[in-house]
Design a protein around this nucleic acid. Structure first.
Length: 158
DNA sequence: GCCAACGTTGGC
DNA sequence: GCCAACGTTGGC
């Protein structure tokens, strides 16, 4: 199957694109997703090799800041079983997990962040889920939109 | 910090 | 199954 494209949001104060680039193996577990629609995408749709637009939410300005690659497909999110985690879910069991994670690996950091405002006003990007259902933290991105934003961000600096 | 949007929960 | 209450997200 052809590579699919996704957008994933993270608050830079919590885990930024720089944190991802600095992580062991430049890879991290994308855990803590607790929205059913996003969960279904993680569990059913997102495949190894798919490309991710990394987006900083709750940032100034909010912006697409780089790209990543899916390196491990869905597996049960371990934080749902951890009583000490804020993501603990007492309705989840080992045999019937409710929440899933994937692993993503840093691929590029844009030469310049592409701010939300620019995405909103750029031709060809109006249909992005980002502009319509802004709260969804994992969402599909049309390949054309991914390519436009990737180009706007410019060559990776590292 | 405010608040609109909207997803989830739970009483009925 | 409806819907009010509540909690969270995220832009501003």
């Amino acid at each position: 199957m052809a590579k699919q494209h996704w957008l994933m949001k993270s608050e830079p104060d919590v885990f930024s694109i720089d944190d991802l680039a600095a992580a062991p193996g430049q890879t991290t577990m994308w855990e803590g997703v607790r929205n059913f629609q996003a969960r279904n995408l993680l569990r059913d749709e997102i495949k190894r090799g798919d490309l991710v637009l990394y987006y900083h939410s709750n940032a100034d300005p909010p912006a697409a800041v780089g790209t990543a690659e899916v390196v491990r497909e869905a597996y049960p999110d371990p934080t749902q079983f951890d009583k000490r985690s804020k993501y603990f879910d007492d309705k989840a069991t080992r045999t019937s997990p409710r929440w899933f994670a994937v692993d993503i690996k840093w691929a590029s950091t844009f030469a310049r962040p592409v701010p939300l405002d620019e995405i909103r006003n750029h031709p060809g990007l109006q249909d992005m889920v980002l502009l319509k259902r802004s709260r969804l933290s994992v969402q599909p991105v049309p390949p054309a939109a991914f390519n436009i934003i990737n180009k706007l961000g410019g060559k990776a600096t590292r």
